[in-house]
Design a protein around this nucleic acid. Structure first.
Length: 298
DNA sequence: ATTCAGGTGCGAG
DNA sequence: CTCGCACCTGAA
């Protein structure tokens, strides 16, 4: 899917075309990535070693901070601007539950994140809560990430974490996940694990490989397959999605994690990942009250 | 104080 | 192979 979308560069910055129903803030704030800071109209974060800010305005994404870097195409791909959301949501809308939810969650694309950052981030997410996940990743970046030209820090390179003293990792509130992070960092740094490999593998093959990594179980593996490797048939089952599926598809009857995953992949097929995002986003917004899927989650 | 939070790795049956 | 449980840590 190496798309080359048309784009334009103006003195004000770069502008990427975004087709309806693409929704930038919903995409960046539904738990796929943990470093974007929404600020009402847009979001600030790091991409390709630059601190940038994004803002959606009628059919386009305005980008500040990326002038002349020649990575606009890569950014468009990262943001999922090339994904046919209209037809995807039309298809998902055949499901009565999703048909009811979609008006509130429409426009969520699947990000194409860097595999390493995604791996480390979702290991950290295990048995954790979002504010603390964000805190941990922010501290790791501040302490171990490369300084960026426009201020801010990159997500830490594997090598930076591979050699990190246990004490320094503890200061980032990693808790019991610290050894997992250091282990995967060493595996990647040493070359014994190739994080590019899953791109060329099938969903099942790639999942089998990822499950070998310390700290990576079914849920984290599916997050990686979906958010980094573009395997849209992945359906990560976390506590929120499990509850949502039990409630809306099984009248509240308890199901095992495996049953939920099997059910979803069967029902939604190659679009299971999108279905998961809508279910997760909607259910979580209900539980946590406002601001809802449309706005930022601080 | 007790419970919960976007699970995973264990050992036991 | 399924099931039950401990687990860093901070906020409610």
């Amino acid at each position: 899917m190496g798309t080359t979308l048309p784009m334009s560069v103006t003195p004000a910055g770069t502008v990427l075309p975004a087709r309806r129903p693409y929704h930038l803030l919903r995409t960046l704030s539904c738990g796929q990535a943990f470093r974007w800071r929404a600020d009402g109209t847009g979001a600030a974060g790091v991409f390709a070693g630059r601190s940038i800010r994004l803002e959606q305005r009628r059919g386009a994404i305005a980008v500040e901070g990326l002038e002349g870097d020649g990575v606009s195409g890569a950014l468009a791909r990262y943001l999922g601007l090339d994904q046919p959301l209209r037809s995807i949501e039309r298809e998902l809308g055949h499901d009565p539950v999703l048909a009811r939810i979609l008006p509130l969650t429409s426009g969520i694309a699947i990000l194409r994140q860097d595999p390493w950052e995604c791996l480390a981030s979702f290991i950290i997410s295990a048995f954790n809560n979002i504010p603390k996940i964000e805190l941990t990743i922010a501290r790791l970046s501040e302490r171990f990430g490369d300084a960026l030209p426009g201020g801010g820090r990159a997500f830490p390179q594997p090598a930076a974490l591979a050699d990190a003293p246990a004490r320094a990792l503890r200061a980032c509130v990693l808790g019991y996940r610290a050894p997992y992070i250091r282990s995967v960092a060493r595996l990647v740094t040493s070359g014994s694990v190739d994080l590019q490999a899953p791109f060329a593998l099938t969903y099942d093959e790639a999942k089998r490989m990822l499950l070998e990594l310390p700290g990576v179980g079914e849920k984290v593996a599916d997050c990686l397959l979906l958010f980094a490797y573009g395997k849209a048939e992945a359906f990560p089952v976390d506590v929120w999605v499990k509850r949502a599926v039990e409630r809306w598809y099984f009248r509240g009857d308890a199901k095992t994690e495996r049953e939920v995953r099997t059910f979803a992949r069967r029902r939604f097929g190659s679009l299971a990942g999108y279905a998961q995002q809508h279910l997760f986003s909607y259910h979580r917004s209900q539980r946590t009250g406002s601001p809802g899927p449309r706005a930022s989650v601080r």
